[in-house]
């Protein structure tokens, strides 16, 4: 039996046969530092009146950066198999698409309120 399973490990898999190795505490601390800095930037953007006009894109980029940092390092997507990234990224794509389309559709409806 065990023989069969070992072959399973070797063949049924695709490109990533090794157990992923996770980074150490050092990387985690650096990432956390970045997260704090980005959050601080976000809050700054909120309070600076001069940035009112560009607040949406700037905040979106900052949030995306935080999102990506956590997903890649804390959730180890950078180190794990591509399959896991796929399982996560595809729903994100659909979710973003859904969010954008619903916003556009309801923006149109807003002109037709009774």
């Amino acid at each position: 039996m065990s023989e069969a399973t070992q072959t399973a490990g070797a063949i049924a898999t695709h490109d990533h046969a090794d157990q992923p190795h996770h980074p150490g505490a050092g990387i985690y601390l650096i990432v956390a530092l970045f997260l704090c800095v980005l959050t601080a930037m976000e809050i700054t953007v909120f309070y600076v009146p001069a940035l009112k006009t560009v607040i949406v894109p700037v905040l979106l980029v900052l949030a995306a950066a935080k999102f990506a940092l956590i997903a890649m390092f804390f959730m180890h997507l950078k180190y794990d198999s591509w399959t896991l990234s796929g399982i996560f990224i595809f729903p994100l794509f659909i979710a973003a698409f859904m969010l954008a389309s619903l916003m556009m559709l309801f923006a149109y409806l807003a002109h037709h309120l009774a």
Binding site: D15, W82, T83, S85, G86, I89, F90, F93, A96
Partner: peptide, 16 residues
Amino acid sequence: RVSYPAQIMYLFLLMI
């Protein structure tokens, strides 16, 4: 090159 499914995903996301 990245693996084939990853390539597909990559090009797919490029549409964004």
